[in-house]
């Protein structure tokens, strides 16, 4: 009897899940049998216990970090897309802005963070600004490239049809820029949570960064691991969320894969 076919998403999810399970199992075995103290290497089970025991503090920390992340991402979206549009609008602006944007990314976040704390205090604002700083760049660059990627022949065709500059923007340039925009957004969201956490670490009164800092100071290694796991889990969740939005927003982009399947099946 042939094995029943699994749905496609199971096919996609199975290998990483199996591998992760193996890693956890190995980690658990090593932690239990190597004689290393829990202070050096806590086992996965101990990490899970630590998460459960500190769940109230953790919940609060996650809420604060997510708020900073969301605000920062929203501002980065406005700034990044705005810069991209400005650079697309004028070659002069592009020449003026591009080197400055690149330079802004060569400055260490860890160096900027204390400065922002000095200027804006220990509240929400400096963390949001750090998220903006790490997120706007991939958004601006990929959106600008996306806008520039519009097929000039397509633009010419619309002009020949009598389209106005505004119509060409709406019908050609913007849709053509969307795949690039989403690539940038995927990079941005994976940076965003880490950005917020760094801000909290340097000068925060709440959030996952502070949780991490306190755990480190208390030499609670298991809680340090909790912070690491939660930070990555949030980043991965955001990444997947963007992928989901992208698939819904750009069905045509993903229909190319389907087209290839059709071709192979010899429909024409």
């Amino acid at each position: 009897m042939p094995a029943p076919r699994l749905p496609a998403w199971v096919h996609a999810a199975l290998p990483p899940v199996v591998l992760l399970g193996l890693v956890l199992l190995t980690w658990q075995t090593v932690a239990e049998n190597s004689g290393l103290s829990a202070f050096i290497l806590p086992s996965p089970v101990q990490v899970a216990q630590a998460a459960w025991e500190t769940r109230a503090a953790l919940g609060e920390a996650v809420t604060v970090t997510l708020l900073e992340t969301a605000l920062g991402l929203a501002a980065a979206l406005a700034l990044g897309v705005g810069l991209a549009a400005a650079m697309d609008f004028s070659v002069w602006l592009r020449r003026a802005l591009y080197p400055l944007l690149v330079a802004s990314q060569t400055v260490q976040v860890l160096a900027i963070a204390p400065l922002l704390i000095i200027w804006f205090g220990f509240g929400l604002l400096p963390k949001v600004l750090i998220v903006v700083l790490v997120c706007f760049f991939p958004l601006a660059v990929s959106t600008a490239d996306g806008l520039a990627s519009a097929d000039p022949d397509l633009v010419a065709l619309l002009r020949a049809m009598g389209a106005t500059r505004g119509q060409i923007w709406r019908l050609v340039r913007l849709p053509a820029a969307l795949p690039g925009f989403f690539s940038g957004l995927r990079v941005a969201v994976t940076y965003s949570v880490v950005g917020a956490t760094i801000g909290e670490w340097v000068g925060g009164t709440a959030g996952l960064g502070l949780y991490l800092l306190r755990s480190k100071n208390a030499l609670a290694t298991d809680q340090v691991f909790v912070a690491i796991v939660i930070t990555s889990a949030l980043s991965i969740a955001l990444f997947l969320l963007v992928g989901l939005i992208e698939r819904t927003a750009l069905p045509w982009y993903y229909s190319r894969q389907r087209a290839r399947q059709w071709e192979e099946s010899g429909i024409y």
């Binding site: 097929d151 022949d153 397509l154 065709l157 002009r159 020949a160 009598g162 389209a163 050609v172 750009l250």
Partner: peptide, 18 residues
């Protein structure tokens, strides 16, 4: 003359997102 005659260029130039 823009918009006054119908024009079909060599490439089909269909909008991929429509």
């Amino acid at each position: 003359r823009l918009g006054r005659v119908g024009y079909m260029p060599q490439k089909d130039l269909l909008l991929p997102w429509r």
